[in-house]
């Protein structure tokens, strides 16, 4: 266990170092959510006037959606970089050492999640500059914990898929394909009261919906304990499951 933690730590350090050397690359992924945030914020501005719309301004409503979108875009690269590392032989070099196999996956997933947190933080700041309201530092901080959990889950999926598909193209394609439907099948863009029944049912198993709801609750300041607890529990479960799956795929395919 101690070894697992220390192995993960050193590998995480390596990835962090590499990211810090090329910070621009990590920042590129936030461009798209940012554009969405600004354009959607304008486009759907008047939707907030519709009867039954829960909050005052659409920008405030959509910010959690943009944050979660950043998570999706940011994590989908995790698997691609795993394939690249395999291609370069760096993974093989790790595999001949006694290093824990679990920590290879763990370090990658955690590194991705940490990167995504920084990206989301930047999005949040920009949104605030453009007039979105985030009530309280505590809410903002807790929302980043949600972001962390969701990122662990999705980068786990990305790494697992990478080991399963073994090629970059389908992986990127699948990542892109997944993003939008998952976004639309949650309350990221449209409040639940506007949704047809069947989509409402789907949102119940969509981890993105839990993350969006919890984040929104934190930002508005009116978080009910229930939403928060359910959100944390569901997302933790999602993260654990997807990382275990990724690890399983990694061990299977590599030995």
């Amino acid at each position: 266990m101690v070894q697992l933690v220390s192995d993960t730590w050193y590998l995480f350090n390596k990835y962090l170092r590499i990211t810090l050397r090329m910070p621009m690359w990590a920042l590129f992924t936030i461009v798209q959510p940012l554009i969405w945030l600004l354009i959607f914020g304008q486009l759907f501005k008047n939707m907030a006037n519709l009867p039954g719309f829960p909050q005052g301004r659409y920008m405030d409503f959509f910010l959690p959606g943009a944050i979660i979108m950043t998570v999706l875009f940011g994590t989908s690269w995790s698997g691609v970089s795993l394939l690249r590392e395999i291609n370069f032989g760096t993974i093989e070099k790790m595999m001949v050492t006694p290093v824990s196999r679990v920590s290879i996956v763990m370090s990658r997933v955690i590194h991705t999640a940490v990167t995504v947190i920084v990206q989301c933080f930047i999005i949040m700041i920009i949104a605030i500059i453009f007039g979105a309201t985030v009530s309280g530092v505590k809410g903002a901080f807790l929302s980043l914990v949600i972001v962390f959990l969701l990122s662990l889950g999705f980068s786990g999926i990305s790494n697992g898929l990478a080991m399963w598909l073994k090629r970059e193209e389908p992986l990127v394609m699948l990542g892109n394909m997944m993003t939008l439907p998952l976004m639309f099948l949650s309350s990221a863009m449209v409040p639940k009261s506007f949704m047809p029944e069947w989509i409402k049912v789907i949102t119940k198993i969509n981890p993105i919906d839990y993350a969006v709801e919890a984040t929104r609750a934190f930002y508005s300041g009116g978080a009910s304990l229930h939403t928060i607890l359910v959100g944390f529990l569901f997302l933790s479960l999602f993260a654990v499951l997807s990382i275990s799956w990724a690890t399983e795929m990694f061990m299977n395919q590599s030995e």
Partner: peptide, 20 residues
């Protein structure tokens, strides 16, 4: 299998860490 984005020394240190 050396990592292109690390320095030579960092690669060596990391490998040492991998061997605990």
């Amino acid at each position: 299998g050396v990592d292109y984005f690390l320095s030579g020394r960092e690669n060596l240190v990391l490998q040492g860490r991998m061997y605990r």
